[in-house]
Design a protein around this nucleic acid. Structure first.
Length: 338
DNA sequence: AAGACGAAAGTGGTTGA
DNA sequence: TCAACAACTTTCGTCTT
């Protein structure tokens, strides 16, 4: 065996070791801690004090919480998210401290790649060391197949997220989950399309702004069935404890799609809250409940929408809306006059 | 004529033996 | 693994506005 080949193998081992540290789960834990903080904020500050919209956006770079409807900045510099790396000893500090763009999970190598130039420093000819590094970079960058599919998955998730108008923090969560799934070897042998769509669906739910499977299927290239299969698989294997979605989470989006204002929205949420207290929502599909509550609320506010209109936006049938709204009206003693 | 209504049969997922 | 089961959908005829 030639000297060069031996060298390469040693180098390869070292590279793998470095990758291990770099990809360490602690990064993922750190990101989820940040996500939890954001979620808590969303829960504490539920709506815009100015226009009562629930469409609030957290800008992580400027650390502002602002209202997406009227643009009011509700909180500034809410949390110090700190450096996005954590160091346990001096060696790690020196390895990880750096200047530059913040690390992101949405670029396949977390945005850490540096191009090594072929030309030497200060006019000198490139050293053998540099040649070797360049060679390794070419080999390790995007060449192996799992990296390739990861790049594809990220672009796919970004495409769908754009189509759905999802904020960046959800995209970050999705990318983080994908990395996690990759580490556990859950991707191999499964369709990337199905997995990415399911992950995006999960990310939305984690942030309390669930999309329906219908909506996901519209922007995805795979069927609803495939998405829910992948979703069940992932939530089992990653043992994510997703509590069932509340109908309330769907109300703002459905209302705005129907062109209904905050008054109807608030009324619908009120109805759902009451229904939940009387345990009328148990075992019922959250989307159906949301649809029925909106239907009732619209009538009560004198802004009648037909069952068909509500049905088209929510994706549940008129029959289900009827059944739910009959139940709700009956149990909550709401007089619904058409 | 459009919307609301409800019966009946069908579908896909969950549950418990 | 299979059958029973509940929720939801599809379809369609009837009633109301």
């Amino acid at each position: 065996m030639s000297k060069e080949k031996q060298d390469m193998e040693v180098e390869e081992k070292r590279y793998e070791k470095f990758e291990d540290v770099e990809e360490d789960l602690e990064d993922i834990e750190r990101i989820s801690a940040v996500e939890r903080t954001k979620d808590r904020l969303y829960r504490e500050i539920k709506e815009c004090p100015e226009c009562h919209s629930r469409d609030l956006v957290l800008d992580t770079e400027r650390a502002e919480l602002y209202c997406n409807d009227c643009g009011l900045v509700i909180e500034e510099a809410i949390v110090d998210l700190g450096p996005e790396w954590r160091a346990f000893d001096f060696e790690q500090v020196s390895r990880r401290a750096r200047v530059g763009a913040p690390m992101t999970y949405r670029i396949h190598d977390k945005g850490l790649s540096t191009l090594i130039d072929w030309s030497g420093y200060e006019g000198k000819v490139a050293s053998a060391e540099q040649h070797r590094l360049k060679k390794w970079q070419q080999r390790m960058h995007v060449t192996n197949t799992s990296e390739r599919s990861f790049v594809f998955a990220l672009s796919e998730m970004d495409r769908m997220a754009s189509a759905l108008g999802l904020p960046t923090n959800i995209r970050e969560t999705a990318a983080m989950l994908y990395r996690k799934a990759m580490k556990k070897g859950l991707i191999r042998g499964r369709s990337i399309e199905g997995i990415t769509t399911a992950i995006l669906y999960i990310a939305c739910r984690l942030h309390g702004v669930p999309r329906t499977l219908d909506e996901m299927a519209e922007v995805s290239r795979v069927s609803q069935k495939e998405i829910s299969r992948s979703y069940r698989f992932l939530s089992r294997e990653l043992d994510l404890k997703l509590q069932p979605t509340s109908p309330v989470d769907f109300v703002p989006r459905f209302c705005s799609k129907l062109g209904l204002d905050g008054e109807v929205e608030a009324k619908a949420i009120e109805i759902i809250k009451e229904a939940q207290e009387k345990e009328l929502t148990n075992g019922r599909g959250p989307i159906g409940i949301a649809a029925a509550a909106i239907y009732i609320a619209a009538i009560l506010c004198g802004k009648h929408k037909t069952q068909k209109e509500v049905s088209e936006v929510t994706g549940v049938t008129e029959v289900t809306i009827r059944n739910r709204y009959k139940e709700l009206a009956e149990e909550l003693d709401i007089e619904v006059i058409l």
